[in-house]
Amino acid sequence: MTLFTGLSAFPLTPIDDSGKLKPELLQRFLERIVSAGVDSIGLLGSTGGYAYLTVEERERTLRAAVESVAGRTPLIVGIGALTTDVAEELARDAQKAGADGLLLAPMSYQPLTEEEVFRHFESVAAAGGLPLCIYNNPGTTKFTFSLNLIARLAKLPNVTAVKMPLPADGDYAGEMQRLRAMTPEGFVIGYSGDWGAKDSLLAGGTCWYSVIAGLLPEPALALTRAVRTGNATEAERIDMTFAPLWALFREFGSFRVMFAIAETLGFATFTPPRPILALQPADRERVETALRPLMQFTG
C-alpha cells in the first residue's frame, strides 16, 4: 500500500505525570493497531500530543515505535515545531531512526504568513529526505493553507500529500477536484476529522487520518473497507454506529475523549498533559455508553 493512503491510525503518546514516556504502554497501543491491519501509523500527531512533548521525549517515542512496528506497518512521524531548526532536527532524526514518512504542521506563536510557511516547509522537506505530508490543521495551528499555497508546496521535492480538515461547506468532491487540478499527478489528498470520514472517503479522499483508529482500529478499518469495496450502505451503517462517539468528539475535542477511551478499554489510567483536563466522571460514563455499539467489531 502506498504511503498516505487508506487508513492511518493516530495513537496517544502515554506519558507519566513528569512528562516521561511509558514505552510499554505505547507499544501496546501500536501492537493493537498493527494487528488490525491498518495501512499506516501516524505517530506524534495532534492525538499524540506532540506539541506538549520535549524534543527528547519525541525522539524516545519515535525509537520505541520503530522498535515495535518496523517492517510491519509504515510509520509516519509528526515533526511540527515552533522553529525551522527544530523541525529540521526532528525530520533528520525520523529518517535516521527508520520512519517511512513525515507529517508537518506549521506551529507558531506569532501568526505566520504564507511565504514564511512555504520557506519553512522548503527547508524541512529538504532536511528530512522522506515523503512529507502537509498537515493542514487550523483548529490547532490557527493557520489555514490556501489551495494556492498547497499547490505551491506540492511542487517541492518530497512533498507528496496533504492532510486536510473537513470543508466547512461539506463539498469534499469539489475541493478535491480543485486541488487535483492544481497539484502534480500522484499528489495524495486525505482528510482528518473522524466524523467526516465516511463522506470524505465516499467522495474520493485517498486517506482517512483517524483519531479513533489509534485505540479502536477494527471499526475504523471496517468503515474504510466498506467504502473501498463500494458498499455505501454498509459504510453508512458503520458510521451511524460511531455517531454517539463523533458527537462527543465534537463536544469535548477528540484528544480529551481518547484518554477516557483508553481508560475504558482497560489500558491504563493516565491523564492528558496539563493544562488539558481529563473528562469528568459523568462524561466518562457517556464515553463508555458510546463505545458499546463499537465492540461488535473488536472480536
Rank of each mutant, 00 (worst) to 15 (best):
P111M: 13
D199I: 12
V257S: 04
S46K: 01
Q27A: 04
E122M: 08
L216Y: 03
L30D: 06
A268T: 00
R237G: 03
A232Y: 09
G139K: 07
A282H: 15
R237E: 10
F249E: 04
D194N: 09
R58A: 14
N137A: 12
P23Y: 05
T271N: 11
Y52A: 15
L21R: 09
G71D: 12
Q280S: 11
N137T: 05
D194H: 08
A290P: 01
A290L: 05
G139L: 02
R250K: 14
Q110Y: 15
A203W: 07
I212T: 13
P275G: 02
L130Q: 09
V55Y: 07
L156H: 11
K22L: 15
L147V: 03
Y191T: 12
P111H: 13
P275V: 07
T298D: 06
D283R: 14
T183K: 08
A290I: 02
T83P: 01
T160Y: 08
E285G: 00
L7S: 10
D239G: 00
A213L: 02
P111Q: 12
F252E: 07
Y209I: 09
P106Y: 05
I41L: 02
P157F: 11
M258A: 06
I238G: 08
L21C: 12
V227Y: 07
L279C: 05
G42K: 04
I79P: 11
E89A: 15
S123G: 10
H120T: 05
V77N: 04
M258D: 01
P165Q: 14
A154V: 10
Q95H: 12
A9P: 02
N137Y: 12
L202R: 10
A290T: 08
A65R: 03
I33H: 03
F143Y: 15
A282I: 08
P138A: 04
N137L: 14
S8P: 02
F297G: 07
A51S: 11
D17W: 06
G45M: 09
P106F: 07
R58K: 14
A9I: 01
G204K: 11
A268P: 02
P184N: 06
L90P: 09
A247W: 06
F187R: 06
P273M: 15
E236K: 13
R60K: 15
Y135W: 13
A99C: 02
K142Q: 04
L147Q: 12
G45A: 11
P165G: 10
Q27T: 04
V162W: 13
I79N: 10
A99S: 04
E88V: 09
E67A: 15
G128L: 14
